[in-house]
Structures are given as C-alpha cells and as structure tokens.
C-alpha cells in the first residue's frame, strides 16, 4: 500500500505532510512528557523488529499465498499510540530511502495511511476500549483482527482519495475504491490473524509487555467537562465559521429533483394534511433556510450554524444520558 511519488500531486503531498507533521509533533510532545529515556532505544529496536518481521512470509492455509505482520497495530499494542506512531515514521522513512518502498514526496501520505490509522485509531477506538477491563486472550485476538482490518480499510480508502484528488487517474472513484477495498479487507484479516498470533504469544510469555489501558486510566485523561468543552468549541467553530463558505448550489438530492421536475423544491400535495404540516413547519422554524426570518444576511447563516451545532450537541447529550439512565434502571 506504499504510495509512489508519481501517484500524488505536490499539493496533496504537502497537505498530507502537514497532517502527518501535526500528528508527529503531538506524539513527540507526549513521548517527551513521559520522560522515559528507556523508550527511545526500545522504539528503535522495535522499529527494526517490524522491518525484519515484515520480511517473513507467513503461509496462509489453503491458498498457497503468504501474508505479513501489521506493524502499526502490533506496535500500538506494545508501545502505546504515540511511541508506535514515531516508530512507524522511522520504519517508513527507511523503507522509502533504502528500498524505494514508497516515495519521499509521498512520505506524508504513507505515514498517514499506514501509521496514523493503525497507531491512533487502532489504539483509541479498538485496543483501549476492548482491553479496558483487563487483558484477555479473546480480546487480544479480536482487537488485533479488528484493528488491522480497520487500519487497512481506512488506509486503502485514503490511497484512493489521495490519488483521485491528485487527478492522476481517469479511473472512476467507485471502480478504484471497489478494487482497493475488498482486497485490503482480505489482507487486513490475514494481517490481523498474524498480529494476533504474535500478540497472543507475548500475552502468554510476558503479558506485562502489552500496553494496558488500565494504567493509562490511572495516569489521568481528559475530564468529561474538558472533553465536552473542546467538542463544543470545535462544533461552534465549524458550524459558525465554515457555514459562511456553504455552497449556494443545490445539494445532490435537490440537484436530482431539479433534473426531474425543473425545480429544487417539490410542490406540496393538494391535501389538507400537507397544508397543515407546512403551516406548522413555518410557524415553528426559528431559522428558515438557515437564515433569520425575512433576512438574507451572513450573520443569520453563521448564527444558524452555531445554533444548529448546539442543538445537535444537546440532543446527543440528552440521548446519551437517556441511554445511561435506562441501562442503569435495567441493571
């Protein structure tokens, strides 16, 4: 899945370098905060291990072909997300320079596609939640397989997107994605199995080597209020700021309707039910068409964005609390 330089445009390569640099800078900060001088030699040797282990061919039973280890997912289970991400950067850089496996310009893309998803999403969305209540054999297997499959699927999808945005191929997006995703689903499953076999061996031989989220929990994490504040600010910024750049063109559904009927709005039926429903909507809509009533100002659009974000957030919080309330009641 290593992308060659020819598959990306300089703009896409630059953008992906920025994204990967941001993730790397945050990881470096986190690793420095740990202040564990032992970690850097471990990262170096583990990087070399991933390199060597990826050259071993593991026979897939009944197929005659072979698979390899999923480096990102395995490292994140052993070193945690930040150290593993930096380790993967080193591995990818050396692979690119020494073996022409991936290009120098496309390194930002490759770091994102092959290290970010496995190390961060694999850890925070799969490994940590699954091992929250302690390590177990079944959970190690499930997390390895799921993590590897998710990382490869997202990585393959990113490759498709980056190539399409770069304008390299005339292949339609659906065909390209259709070719990339299924094959990487199978590869992800096999890589997940191999990773699970290795992690299981470590779990049985030296379980203390595996990253335990229970310890991370004790070290402290973002409080609930802190998380909600960050999410709230992000939602307000996106809703308030980016809504100004919202397109005035019809969306996909409106465009399709326009093609069929000649108008972006469907004419309501003649029945009284339609008229009543329309009247209710008109009287209850605070911000019709994402603007103040009887006004077309940009302020109205921004206000709509912020208000909408807050409303969605409030509904989500309400649903979550409701869900927790009923679950506790049932228990």
């Amino acid at each position: 899945m290593h992308m060659a330089d020819a598959l990306v445009s300089p703009a896409v390569a630059g953008a992906m370098y920025l994204c990967s640099t941001a993730a790397a800078a945050y990881s470096i900060k986190k690793v420095r905060l740990e202040n564990d001088t032992r970690k850097i030699p471990v990262m170096g040797v583990m990087g070399a291990f991933v390199f060597a282990a990826q050259m071993i061919n593991f026979t897939i039973p009944g197929t005659g072909s072979s698979g390899h280890l999923c480096g990102g997912m395995m490292l994140t289970a052993l070193l945690g997300p930040y150290a593993s991400f930096l380790t993967m950067i080193g591995v990818l850089l050396i692979q690119c320079l020494l073996f022409a496996d991936g290009g120098l310009l496309a390194l930002g893309c490759n770091i994102w596609n092959m290290a970010f998803y496995g190390c961060f999403l694999g850890y925070f969305l799969i490994w940590r939640p699954m091992q929250k209540n302690g390590l177990a054999k079944g959970k190690v297997i499930a997390a390895s397989i799921l993590g590897s499959m998710a990382a490869l699927q997202l990585g393959a999808f990113s490759v498709t997107l980056e190539t399409m945005v770069s304008g390299i191929t005339e292949l339609p997006f659906s065909i390209f994605a259709g070719a990339m995703q299924p094959i990487h689903l199978a590869i992800g499953f096999v890589e997940g199995l191999i990773t699970a076999a290795v992690l299981l061996f470590v779990y049985e031989a030296r379980p203390e080597m595996l990253d335990s989220p229970q310890e991370a929990k004790r070290e402290g994490r973002l409080s609930f209020l802190h998380t909600m504040a960050v999410l709230g600010i992000a939602a307000a910024l996106v809703g308030g700021g980016l809504s100004l750049a919202a397109s005035a063109n019809p969306d996909g559904l409106e465009w399709s309707i326009e093609r069929v009927t000649g108008s972006t709005e469907l004419n309501a039926g003649n029945g009284s039910a339609y008229a009543v429903a329309e009247q209710i909507q008109k009287s209850t809509a605070l911000l019709p068409d994402y603007a103040f009533k009887g006004s077309e100002s940009a302020l109205g659009t921004t206000f709509s964005g912020v208000a909408g974000s807050i409303a969605v957030l409030a509904v989500c919080v309400g649903v979550c609390f409701g869900f927790r309330f009923f679950r506790r009641k049932r228990q």
Partner: peptide, 11 residues
C-alpha cells in the same frame, strides 16, 4: 526524538 529513533532503527 525522531531523528535518534530513525538512526537506532537503521542501526
């Protein structure tokens, strides 16, 4: 941190 790690990995 990153440079040392690359160097050690290569070594």
């Amino acid at each position: 941190v990153l440079v040392t790690q690359v160097l050690l990995t290569y070594r």
